[in-house]
């Protein structure tokens, strides 16, 4: 029996979108006659969504938020991987820094907001520093783990074939730590989105987080819900982007795992 090409793909799409579709339908009908002040009908929320976010706010609020997230996240990756390689590499540095890193990591980043405000001023830079303060830890600590776990046979191979310096760093250390680094980066992305919102709750007049907060305090509940919906959709979109990057960077790793499972 032959299957139509694409049939399996369709099945997968149906599987992925099935539950969300059902939930939206349930939400639509359950909320349709709602006259509750806070829990508005979905139809109203969708109208608010179009009017709120697809207008000037896209440029005034959504893009600045995303840009801060992107800059903070990128800085965290560079900082986390860079420091992680150094710490994972040097035994002395590790012994010296590990307790401090564990302590810093244990502090919830929102608790640092007032403190960071003191040093980083008030503008964009303050909010970016808050995002970095939360995102850098999972990347840093996972990179340290990954660098320490370099296979010793591969390390010997590099030594005896005199693969050293930058080639060694790129071809051995970073590549073999890359599955761990990606794990840290995935955790950091989730933290980054949360901090993007939290960092906007005070001291600004722009951003998605600020807008949602403002709608709530001014009783504009459909708009508030549409902001929550927007954040959810952004989260899904970013997770998809991450999946794309992951399969590009770690294609070899997923293949290796699959072939080990078959053997």
């Amino acid at each position: 029996m032959t299957k139509l090409p694409g049939w399996q793909g369709l099945q997968r799409v149906a599987l992925v979108l099935g539950l969300p579709a059902v939930l939206v339908v349930v939400w639509w009908f359950a909320s349709a006659d709602s006259d509750h002040l806070v829990f508005r009908p979905l139809s109203e929320i969708l109208v608010a969504f179009r009017e709120t976010w697809l207008g000037p706010r896209l440029v005034e609020d959504v893009l600045p938020s995303l840009s801060r997230l992107a800059r903070g996240y990128a800085a965290s990756v560079v900082l986390g991987v860079g420091l992680g390689v150094l710490v994972g590499w040097s035994r002395t540095l590790r012994a010296l820094l590990e307790p401090v890193l564990e302590l810093l990591r244990a502090i919830p980043p929102p608790a640092l907001i007032p403190l960071i405000g003191l040093f980083a001023g008030l503008g964009d830079s303050r909010r970016i520093v808050i995002i970095i303060a939360g995102c850098v830890w999972p990347i840093l600590l996972n990179t340290v783990e990954g660098v320490r776990a370099v296979d010793e046979v591969l390390a010997d191979t590099c030594r005896s074939y005199r693969v050293r310096g930058l080639t060694r760093l790129r071809q051995l250390v970073l590549r073999s730590a890359s599955p761990q680094i990606m794990t840290g980066a995935r955790q950091a992305l989730a933290i980054g989105i949360i901090l993007m919102v939290i960092s906007e709750l005070r001291g600004t007049v722009h951003g998605i987080g600020f807008s949602v907060e403002q709608f709530q305090t001014s009783f504009r509940y459909p708009e508030m819900w549409s902001g929550v919906l927007l954040l959810g959709l952004l989260g899904v979109a970013l997770a998809l982007l991450f999946r794309l990057a992951d399969s590009w960077i770690l294609g070899w790793y997923h293949g290796l795992r699959a072939s080990n499972r078959e053997r």
């Binding site: 046979v153 010997d156 005896s160 074939y161 693969v163 080639t167």
Partner: peptide, 28 residues
């Protein structure tokens, strides 16, 4: 001096294709 290790499977870089594995020492 070149070595072929006992654990040959582990001595190949799983993230490099066969040709790149062979070329890596030459690149270095």
């Amino acid at each position: 001096l070149a070595v072929v290790f006992q654990e040959y499977g582990r001595s190949l870089f799983p993230w490099l294709r066969v040709r790149d594995n062979v070329e890596l020492p030459l690149r270095a």
